[in-house]
């Protein structure tokens, strides 16, 4: 993991920073009541100019993911086949000649489950909140003006949902649950919109990507949903960046999910992505990891451990 950064969802604007730098507030020139109070409690001679953390502009998620261009490594086109071979060998050893009646499907949630509280994560309202937030992210990525987050997300989601379990779950919601869902979507949307920043069109953002990889002759299928991806696999320098947006607080499982996204994307495209990240709209936290051989190998081990758990439970 290269760095872990927290992005405040409601950081001060640039104008506010400028004011703080000038130190005008401390002298009560703007007549702010808090400043007046401060003036009475602390004598002026005891005040000294100092730098605070808030004076640093809070980077948006997009800024943080952009990083420094000249430090980007060359795109790695060779790791994919090696990782696949390690996975295939590991599965072969785990199976030890057993025949599976059905394919084992691995999701990023398969790696998270042992760490999270399933009742909270899998409740209908939580799942609906996640789906609607995802729709809003998709609208945000193409610069659509969202005026009523809940209604807009619902309208867009309904246009492509095919009458599945979540549709039924939505229709069964009680009025108070619906109101709670609406409020939650609004709150998470506010955090996401403020933190994400503007995605340049030239980065070619694509959202809601469903990715799958068959291993061991189809006995194991790695399935993944990448919420937001940008960058190109054709460029000489690595540029593909993955972002997972979750409406839950980040826990240890989120780090596994980050690694898993990078692994599946590498296997799918044959090119190692530059960065993988996860953003929580519940807390405004952003975790970013540069993708390297170590990170990918850890993900391979995560997958093999998840398979071992699953098969031993059978």
């Amino acid at each position: 993991m290269r760095s872990t950064r927290a992005v405040a969802s409601d950081g001060p604007s640039h104008d506010q920073h400028t004011q703080d730098h000038d130190g005008q507030d401390e002298h009560g020139e703007d007549g702010d009541e808090h400043v007046d109070t401060l003036g009475r409690v602390t004598a002026l001679r005891k005040s000294v100019a100092m730098t605070t953390l808030l004076d640093t502009p809070v980077p948006s998620v997009v800024d943080a993911l952009r990083g420094e261009r000249h430090r980007r490594p060359m795109a790695d086109h060779h790791a994919s086949s090696g990782l696949r071979a390690v996975l295939e060998d590991g599965i072969y050893e785990l199976l030890a000649g057993r025949q599976l009646a059905t394919s084992t499907i691995v999701h990023s949630s398969s790696l998270r489950d042992s760490w999270s509280v399933p009742e909270l994560a899998s409740s209908s309202v939580a799942r609906l909140r996640g789906v609607l937030l995802m729709v809003l992210l998709r609208l945000l990525s193409v610069g659509v003006q969202v005026d009523a987050p809940f209604d807009d997300a619902l309208c867009a989601w309904r246009s492509q949902s095919g009458g599945g379990q979540l549709d039924d779950a939505f229709d069964r919601l009680e009025p108070d649950e619906l109101a709670r869902l609406s409020t939650e979507v609004q709150a998470h949307w506010t955090t996401l919109r403020r933190a994400l920043g503007v995605i340049p069109a030239i980065w070619q953002p694509r959202t809601g990507m469903h990715v799958s990889q068959r291993l061991a002759g189809g006995d194991v299928v790695l399935v993944d949903n990448i919420d937001l991806m940008f960058g190109s696999t054709n460029s000489r320098a690595a540029s593909v960046t993955l972002l997972d947006v979750t409406s839950s607080p980040l826990a240890e499982g989120a780090e596994r999910a980050m690694r898993y996204h990078a692994l599946v994307q590498t296997l799918r495209s044959g090119v190692v992505p530059l960065r993988t990240s996860v953003f929580s709209s519940a807390t405004g936290e952003l975790w970013i990891g540069d993708v390297d051989h170590q990170l990918l190998m850890r993900s391979v081990r995560d997958v093999l451990e998840a398979l071992e758990r699953d098969w031993s439970a059978r």
């Binding site: 609208l139 969202v146 807009d152 309208c155 867009a156 959202t207 809601g208």
Partner: peptide, 13 residues
Amino acid sequence: NPVIGLVTSEALG
């Protein structure tokens, strides 16, 4: 409008 936004997102992908 939100549906057209989603169409744009899908088409861009």
